[in-house]
Computed example of a mutant assay.
Amino acid sequence: MRVEIWSDINCPWCYIGKARFERALETFPHRADVEVVHRSFELDARAPHQARPVVPLLAAKYGMGLEQAEAAEQRIAETARAEGLAYVRAGRDAANSFDMHRMLHFAAEHGRQAALLDLLYRANFAEEGSAFAPGRLVELAVEAGLDGTEAARVLADRAAYADAVREDEATASAMGATGVPFFVFDRRLGVSGAQPAETFTAALEQAWDSRTVLPLIGGGGEDREGGEACGPEGCAVPQR
């Protein structure tokens, strides 16, 4: 069975949702027969490549003050930590993620996609410093086991893997996805948002057993309790 996951490195709910899905997959009896493929989705394809602080971006997107935006980021951090994930709030930034998606496709060809994705999430959410700093993407590619010279060549060639990124995004759009994370099980069952691990367990079991077209759990990008997501207008913020 194949599980495809559309996500963006800028999306904290993708970071959290991945952890919840993996917890469900760990206990799935057929996990050895599950292929996980990560697909590209840009939350803001027009975002500048120069990194900008996250808190002012949150304030602008939600029309809130900086203190409110800081509190929202704190609540997301607490949710991440409850899942056992490190989350550094201070100084976190965001930028255009297209090059990261291109590099993930390059990594997939060499069997290192999962390793690179974990490193990108770590760099963006769990470490001081910027994941978007010049040279950082190539450093992470090397840490994931890729050849540094080849990674630099891919990064320098703006056309390299660009079509693969756009194809992923077109497929997500055709499926009705407007936000991420978005999980698709054997192109038969869709799960939208960072659902609880129990929901992913049920989806794995249902997709494994079923041979019919099944409905979408959660709307394509619509927020629902326990299924927070990020979309073009921003990321859902957990409420106390």
Rank of each mutant, 00 (worst) to 15 (best):
D93W: 09
A47R: 14
H38C: 06
A160R: 13
A82D: 01
A19T: 07
V154Q: 05
E42T: 14
A45V: 13
L204K: 07
A19C: 05
F183H: 08
T212Y: 05
A144K: 12
E139R: 15
V36L: 11
E233P: 04
R188M: 08
Y87P: 01
G227H: 08
G84W: 06
Y15V: 06
A133L: 03
G226Q: 03
Q113W: 10
L119S: 03
R2N: 05
E139F: 14
G111C: 12
F98K: 13
G190W: 00
A77I: 05
A59Q: 04
E70P: 04
R81Q: 12
P238L: 03
D44V: 13
H38W: 15
A144R: 12
P12A: 12
G226V: 06
V54E: 00
H30D: 00
A203D: 00
A197Y: 05
G176H: 03
V3Q: 02
L140S: 08
R158H: 12
L214M: 06
E42I: 14
E4K: 13
L85M: 09
A197Q: 07
V237F: 00
F125W: 08
S130N: 04
P181W: 05
P215W: 07
Q206P: 00
V36Y: 08
A177N: 01
T171R: 13
T171K: 08
T79A: 01
G219F: 08
A69R: 00
Q195S: 07
E198N: 03
E225P: 07
E4W: 10
I76D: 00
R2V: 09
H110V: 10
F183G: 01
R52W: 04
I217Y: 02
P215Y: 08
Q50W: 12
M103W: 10
E128A: 15
I16W: 04
V55I: 15
W6K: 07
P29K: 13
E198V: 13
A144H: 09
E150Y: 14
V213L: 06
A114W: 08
A131P: 02
R2C: 02
M64V: 15
E67D: 14
R224W: 10
E127V: 09
A131W: 11
H30N: 03
D157P: 06
G193R: 09
V55Q: 00
E225S: 12
T199Q: 02
R89N: 05
V237G: 01
R39A: 10
R188C: 04
A32W: 07
P134Y: 12
E67Y: 07
G179C: 11
P232W: 15
S40R: 14
M175K: 09
C11P: 02
T149H: 13
H110Y: 11
T79V: 03
R224F: 13
G219K: 09
A164E: 01
Q68A: 15
F28I: 06
R52P: 02
I217K: 03
L116Q: 04
E22I: 10
G234V: 12
A194P: 02
G218Q: 02
G226M: 07
A174E: 00
A156K: 13
L66D: 03
R92A: 05
P181I: 06
G231Y: 14
A47S: 11
Q195D: 02
C230D: 01
G179P: 05
A126Y: 06
E150C: 14
E70D: 09
V154S: 09
Q50F: 13
I9T: 11
R20Y: 10
A207P: 01
N10V: 15
L85F: 10
